[in-house]
């Protein structure tokens, strides 16, 4: 516990001072992308990791947040920050609409519904040109600003992303150690038993899903402001695959796992420098290997190694 606290403070401190030491915008951009991915992974982790329901359209909620922010800012002049909130609310309402009818059913309905929802939203974003400007996307999403200061370079965005990540991590940590998190895990571990000890499985599944979609919407809105742009690419299914990969290779149903997964999935293409199409193949392959050989992800492997080494001392 001590060691964990210490490393937590060390990492937080490092994250806080990093932009002061690193000025290369490319590195800062990579760090922001990493944190956005980590928030997305944590947002999917509630339903996919803790509760264990296959949510296969997560990019759609990221995209809804982005489009909501872009449209509100450009068409109605809603100030930034308000747009982040709105991105979360609108995305959460869509989450509610998808989850409410499907999460009460057992079987693959929810997985199919989320998959279908992702595909439909991508079609809408591409084809409803009067609203979304179609495949070209919406340029000119205004930057974020604070106290009259307009965010023009990476550094302030870095801190906003860090704040969002801290928020997502806090939510995960507190829920995981509460009755609510225990209910999530109970549903994943044994649905019938969860019901029979009094857990309203439908309510908790819906809560986990909607919470995740709100968070995905907020970070989607943030990303639209940061890149000043949103297009149907934000809703593409390969983004969903990326996020699912992060959660699973890191370790589903843990706090650290999805963050580690996000770091890996963000860095790997930068390191490998391969064509985008090939990345998909590589991610698919890694995902498959993980599911077969390390179903609890990196965190699971680390735990097993730790127990092997220190099992005697712990007991």
């Amino acid at each position: 516990m001590r060691a964990a606290n210490l490393s937590f403070f060390a990492i937080s401190a490092a994250a806080l001072v990093l932009p002061l030491a690193v000025t290369n915008p490319y590195y800062l951009h990579t760090a922001i992308a990493m944190m956005v991915n980590a928030v997305l992974a944590l947002s999917l982790n509630f339903i996919l990791g803790y509760v264990g329901e296959k949510s296969l359209g997560h990019a759609a909620f990221f995209g809804i947040g982005g489009y909501t922010a872009a449209l509100l800012a450009l068409n109605l002049g809603v100030p930034a920050w308000g747009t982040l909130l709105a991105g979360g609310v609108v995305s959460g309402l869509f989450g509610l609409a998808v989850g409410f009818p499907t999460l009460r059913l057992r079987g693959p309905y929810f997985a199919i519904a989320t998959l279908g929802f992702g595909a439909i939203l991508q079609l809408i974003a591409t084809n409803w040109t009067s609203l979304t400007k179609g495949p070209m996307g919406i340029p000119g999403v205004p930057p974020l600003a604070f106290a009259g200061l307009i965010f023009r370079n990476e550094r302030p965005y870095y801190y906003v992303a860090l704040l969002l990540l801290a928020l997502a991590a806090y939510l995960t940590w507190r829920l995981a150690h509460s009755r609510i998190g225990r209910a999530f895990v109970a549903i994943r571990q044994n649905f019938d038993l969860a019901e029979s000890v009094g857990i309203d499985t439908f309510r908790f599944k819906l809560a986990a899903f909607v919470l995740g979609t709100v968070l995905a919407g907020v970070v989607g809105a943030f990303y639209a402001h940061y890149t000043n742009f949103i297009s149907p690419k934000a809703l593409e299914s390969y983004i969903t695959l990326n996020v699912v990969t992060m959660v699973i290779i890191g370790g589903e149903g843990t706090l650290i796992g999805p963050i580690l997964g996000a770091i890996l999935v963000t860095l790997l293409p930068e390191v490998l420098r391969v064509a985008e199409n090939f990345r998909l193949v590589i991610f698919g392959f890694i995902l498959l290997l993980t599911i077969i050989y390390a179903p609890s992800g990196i965190v699971g492997l680390a735990r097993a190694a730790w127990q092997k080494r220190g099992g005697e001392r712990l007991a």
Partner: peptide, 21 residues
């Protein structure tokens, strides 16, 4: 629903072992 009945004070075990493994 089962969880409503649990709240009323009805609890059960299952024929086949059922735990949070």
């Amino acid at each position: 629903k089962p969880h409503e009945l649990a709240a009323l004070g009805l609890a059960r075990t299952f024929q086949h072992t059922s735990l949070f493994p």
